[in-house]
């Protein structure tokens, strides 16, 4: 099976300030997405998950630069593309949807107009384009009359479906979804997830789903990549990640889920706080909060160890040290 997206040891840093200090934001992100695969990136705030999603389509903020690594989208390195190539890539190879659909839809244009505008195929005539729009509205489960509606006349769930339509109209290979259900109700968000599953099957789509809720994606993703302090610390099969988490952080994160406890029990929380990107602990960034911490964890950063069905950055699984030190 072809690999649609391959992120290799991506490192992103804030541009050097006047003192020549470089602060790393992403410190080593590696994962891949194959055809028809849905991969979830799970992380809390400050883990760098949204930045990773943006970097995949080349949307690195102006005050940051890529210091190492590459992002191969359908085989091509995103950061070596010309501006024209990047523009072409967005929408046709990769589509994106975001968290608050109402902010990302222009309030003065109808839903139909916005989908229409998103079509990149210049060869089609107006009528063909319109037909395509109506067709995709059907695919995302919206009735035809939504074409003439304005965003404020649509519910949150409907708005998100319009965004999905806009992202998929050019039949990209991968859909990147940045917390698309966080702002939605439970029943609506369930509907969106069902829709995404159906579209993956119908269009042969790959999905990169960013979220902070690990229990949400355990139910439908194929692979889960867990991020902590700017690095991917574990990539596992989704079911395995929940039942037998490899990295201590994943293990402790799953232990924070309230559904695992009965009334009256206290939740077993993770000691300490997520580190600020300016103050990452030495060695393995999780070591101050890790119940299995060893001496080597304080001094060195673990390299990626790959075993059956998962890869993890933890000295419990392998003693390889990452020598390519970031600040």
């Amino acid at each position: 099976m072809k690999t649609v997206l391959d992120v290799k040891e991506l490192k992103l840093a804030l541009k050097k300030d006047i003192f020549g200090v470089e602060i790393n934001i992403l410190r080593g992100v590696s994962f891949s997405v194959r055809e028809r695969e849905s991969v979830a990136i799970v992380g809390e705030s400050g883990s760098g998950k949204t930045l990773t999603a943006m970097a995949v389509v080349g949307l690195v903020p102006d005050n940051m630069s890529v210091t190492k690594g590459e992002v191969l989208l359908c085989g091509k390195d995103v950061f070596k593309m010309s501006r024209r190539e990047i523009r072409e890539m967005r929408g046709t190879k990769a589509g994106m949807i975001f968290q608050e659909p109402s902010s990302y839809l222009n309030p003065v244009f109808t839903a139909g107009d916005q989908i229409f505008e998103a079509i990149k195929d210049v060869g089609l005539c107006r009528d063909d384009k319109k037909r395509q729009c109506i067709e995709i509205l059907g695919d995302v489960g919206l009735p035809e009359d939504v074409y003439c509606r304005y965003p404020h006349q649509l519910s949150g769930g409907q708005q998100q479906r319009v965004m999905i339509a806009m992202a998929l109209i050019n039949k990209p290979s991968i859909l990147i979804a940045d917390e698309p259900t966080t702002a939605l109700d439970v029943t609506t968000s369930f509907g969106i997830i069902e829709l995404l599953k159906a579209l993956i099957a119908k269009y042969g789509l790959s999905l990169l789903f960013i979220t902070h809720d690990i229990s949400l994606v355990a139910g439908f993703a194929d692979k889960i990549a867990v991020m902590y302090a700017g690095r991917v610390v574990e990539v596992s099969d989704a079911k395995m990640a929940i039942e037998k988490p490899a990295h201590p952080y994943t293990e402790k994160l799953i232990a924070c889920l309230p559904e695992r406890y009965t009334s009256g029990e206290r939740i077993r929380t993770i000691e300490g706080n997520v580190p600020d990107f300016r103050n990452i602990p030495s060695g393995c960034a999780f070591h101050p909060r890790c119940p299995y911490v060893m001496d080597i964890c304080r001094k060195n950063e673990p390299a990626i160890t790959t075993k059956e069905g998962f890869s993890v950055r933890c000295f419990r699984y392998g003693k390889d040290v990452e020598y390519d030190k970031c600040l």
Binding site: E44, H212, D213, C256, L257, R266, I267, T269, I270, V274
Partner: peptide, 11 residues
Amino acid sequence: LDLSVQAKILN
């Protein structure tokens, strides 16, 4: 709130 923070607040 994040999951780990939520857990602490619930406690």
